[in-house]
Design a protein around this nucleic acid. Structure first.
Lengths: 148, 148
DNA sequence: TCTAACTGTAACGAACCTAGTTACAGTTAA
DNA sequence: TTAACTGTAACTAGGTTCGTTACAGTTAGA
């Protein structure tokens, strides 16, 4: 099935907060850009706050701001804040001890899957919100040609 | 949420087929080792057959065998045969074109996520069924000490 | 002081996926 | 002819996701 789209929402929101860093954004503004729902946005930004990536203020005029410089927030930070658990699922049940393969494969698979997951995470950690924002602004200055 | 455990089942089954390479195994034998169900096993081995990794014979005395040498089957081959689609989900809906970030982020995220997924796949491609079988047999010769 | 604009969170539903199961048709060897 | 297999459809229970409604709490400003 694959993971949820929460990582995409989180990265989108963080990039918006970086773009309009001089003021806070409301969950409604972010939800508009996502074509989604303010409650969903608040839930996901809540996870980002728990991870120390953003902070919020309540009440009228309240909203959300980055808690760190965009160059100090990686895509892995966003991913780790909203996505829990493993990517590659292990056996649903412990295999049979009566089988040579069954009693050894779990530990071996654990190492392989863990390494593979880490490779993905390591790649996500190489890109920051600042990188994304720079490319967004570059695209805006020189829009990609539109086919037609 | 993460992916299904089909990859784990597929790799477990392939390792068993490699271990008992001189004869075919039935879905019931593999299901026993997995503490699972023969129908589930047949479904997953069916995907592996579609990918050219195993073949099966019907009728009495039938069963499953590897279609390639264990050293020519990687964990990525197994993964790709049973798991479809992407790992990191993209936006559930296309973001708003009215927002600077919204109209650029999808394409940028696509590149990042694709690269991250490829990093994981590349790591899975580095280990073969022959590697796993060798370690299973090594563990059997020299069992890991049991705490108690 | 009242009101409007926010966050924070619980609760719910529809859609979807997974793992497991039953059932049964088709194939093959003995 | 029968027993042992594969191949596959259909169904269930349980879990997750995304979206929504509802509402309590907080804050700024008229």
């Amino acid at each position: 099935m694959g993971l949820s789209s929460r990582s995409a929402v989180a990265i989108h929101a963080l990039t918006m907060l970086a773009r309009w860093g001089d003021r806070s954004l409301t969950s409604a503004e972010i939800a508009d850009s996502l074509a989604s729902n303010p409650v969903l946005v608040r839930r996901i930004l809540g996870s980002l706050r728990n991870a120390g990536l953003v902070w919020s203020t309540e009440g009228r005029g309240g909203g959300w701001s980055l808690a760190r410089a965009p160059r100090d927030i990686t895509l892995y930070d966003a991913y780790a804040a909203v996505e829990e658990g493993r990517i590659l699922s292990r056996h649903a049940h412990p295999p049979s001890d009566a089988c040579e393969v069954g009693r050894n494969i779990s530990a071996l698979l654990e190492v392989e899957f863990r390494d593979a997951e880490r490779a993905m995470e390591e790649r996500l950690g190489r890109t920051t919100i600042a990188h994304l924002l720079r490319r967004v602004l570059a695209n805006e200055r020189e829009p990609a040609p539109v086919d037609s």
